[in-house]
Amino acid sequence: MDLLSKLVAWLTSAGQWAGSEGIAQRLFEHVEYSLLSTLVAALIALPIGLFIGHTGRGAFLAINLSGFGRALPTVGIVTLVFLVSGLSMTPVYISLVALAIPSIVTNTYAGMAAVEADTKDAARGMGMTGLQSLWRVEVPLAAPLIMTGLRLATVQVIATATIAAYVSFGGLGRYIFDGLAQRDLTQVMGGAVLVAALAVAVDLILAGIHRVLFRHRLT
């Protein structure tokens, strides 16, 4: 109870939010890292998912590779890249992008694979080329699952972007690492609550967009 009231005090004190070390700034940094990482991951993962989903080729390899990606220990990757390339945001981005790719690839592939053969057959039968069938039929039908993959990846990245603070950058992870160093449990908890709240809020926004985009669909 004591901890909770301290937490509320920490979160609500006005001074905490302003300035270059304030929550607002940290929040902004956290969103920046997460957004950029997810975007880069999407640019890499979407074409791969679409390609294997459309052609059915390399599915086994891609699914297993992305499973492999899921197994990458983020702390290890950050540390390794940091030791090799020196102090920069590169280690953080590399590990976050690696984290986001598997969810996007597997969901995109699953969405494409779920498009019924009969539907694709009909598209071909009406004279669509492979590319037309992809853009006009398969991608629109796979869109909800692709979107789910992007959502999942975004949430994972936001929850993990605290790692930036591990190599002395900003973001909400600062509170967690600083709090640990200063044995200040309130600060750790404040950071955790802010990260979770941000992830949930972004997820809800994406869910809202999902609902608006696919409101005419049954599922």
């Binding site: 949430v155 936001i158 929850a159 993990t160 605290t162 992870g173 967690i176 709090g179 640990l180 449990l185 750790v188 908890m189 950071g191 955790a192 990260v195 979770a196 992830a199 949930v200 997820d203």
Partner: peptide, 12 residues
């Protein structure tokens, strides 16, 4: 629960 950073969860 999944969105809580893992390190923070251990600490908590």
């Amino acid at each position: 629960m999944f969105t809580v950073p893992s390190l923070a969860l251990f600490v908590l």
